[in-house]
Design a protein around this nucleic acid. Structure first.
Ligand SMILES: [Mn+2]
Ligand SMILES: [Mn+2]
Ligand SMILES: [Zn+2]
Ligand SMILES: [Zn+2]
Lengths: 142, 142
DNA sequence: GTCTAATTTATAATGGTTCTAAACTAATGT
DNA sequence: ACATTAGTTTAGAACCATTATAAATTAGAC
């Protein structure tokens, strides 16, 4: 629910030039009611479907990584061959539905606070992430 | 701390033929005091260093995946470009040291039990994994 | 030993990601 | 407005971890 001029400011204050391509990607990613998860592939498909202007794949990679670096996106890794980006940049945990390959945010009340009793000496905790893998109750015999 | 005949039994009862290659890999992975984490690359290097017999890379992949499927290994995904295998197949959590790229097991007393208050309806929880990313306390200004 | 299906192997193919270097463009200054 | 420069985009090549292929080998059964 942001508008173009806000994205321009946001990019400028991040030291990123508000190019046509970046603004388009901002609209697709952040001009929404709800946060969501996407793969680079999802985004590329989205762009070629919804936009009548082409954005090169290299630019899509560049932009997503730039946005991640600036903290506008988080990366969630499920397995080696599935990496999602998350427009929800708050600390939160995930359910991963192994039947549908869907990544679902946990509400704060769904998973209790993780208590870390002993951290590694001399190290700072950067993040604590819980991934709950779920699958259909019945046919669970692959 | 197992011996060859035990590996043969283990493989046979899993429906895997105890081939020379699989037994060598069993020795490298399971004939130890402590469990550990490794990448395919680590294992391949280990094999070519410690063994005077070559095992093809395809076989290494095949074997690791077969062992994972049978539940003798777990896969831990850190980011899209780093996947570790774990000979500790019990439920446990991890610290990941972003300075040294080391994956470290949490003892059960280091992280409290994760409380999942609401699961997704009709789904069964397959695993609950916590990953705590840590880094040096000081120079944390990339 | 013979037979058969499982396994190993070298090598090719795949595919997602990164690199390259040339073309383009946003920003700044005059 | 124009010139200059650094940042950005782009197509395509390169990269590289993983998977597929298909032929050779081997384990287990008879
Ligand atoms: Mn990345
Ligand atoms: Mn895998
Ligand atoms: Zn999320
Ligand atoms: Zn572990």
């Amino acid at each position: 629910m942001q508008k173009n001029s806000e994205f321009i400011d946001k990019l400028r204050t991040s030291g990123l030039r508000p190019t046509r391509q970046r603004l388009k990607i901002c609209e697709l990613l952040f001009n929404r009611d709800k946060t969501f998860h996407f793969t680079i592939n999802d985004l590329a498909r989205n762009i070629s479907e919804k936009l009548n202007e082409k954005i090169s794949l290299a630019t899509i990679y560049n932009t997503v990584h730039a946005f991640k670096k600036k903290g506008y996106l988080k990366e969630i890794t499920i397995n080696s061959d599935k990496s999602y980006f998350d427009t929800n940049i708050t600390n939160h945990h995930h359910f991963y539905d192994e039947d549908t390959n869907q990544l679902i945010d946990c509400n704060n009340n769904e998973i209790g606070k993780v208590k870390i009793k002993n951290n590694i000496t001399g190290k700072k905790i950067n993040s604590v992430e819980v991934l709950v893998r779920v699958a259909s109750d019945i046919q669970n015999q692959n």
